[in-house]
Amino acid sequence: MEESLLIIYCSEGGRKALQKMSSEGFRLPSGVCTFELPCTGRINDVMLMETLQNGVRGIFVAGCREENCKYLDGNKRALRRIKRIKKLLSDAGIEGKHIEMQTFGPDEGKRLYSAINDFAGKVGVS
């Protein structure tokens, strides 16, 4: 599954949005796999960089809306961290488009689905 795309979502807002998406009949493209974390604040840049380095085409992080994080500032921290990594990647000559984070409310299934498809298209997974 080298040509795969990884979705990391938090077990609060992210999980609810994913469940809403699946209950509305939207399906994920085949080359996409999901991984759950208690909060997006737990992702650190070593984990992301080493995952990118092992050939994952792209990482899409779905967190809760700002001011709506159960751990108060986990999602803000994640947004800033991923912004830093995107800058690091684009400085190093690899475009920063391989990693992206967006925030979702509990019932924004359709928006999550279109966000994942746009990202998959941008990163070149089927």
Binding site: V46, M49, E50, L52, Q53, L88, L89, A92, G93, I94
Partner: peptide, 11 residues
Amino acid sequence: KVMCSAIRMAD
């Protein structure tokens, strides 16, 4: 670690 991964990924 981050620097190593970045260098490995850079061409």
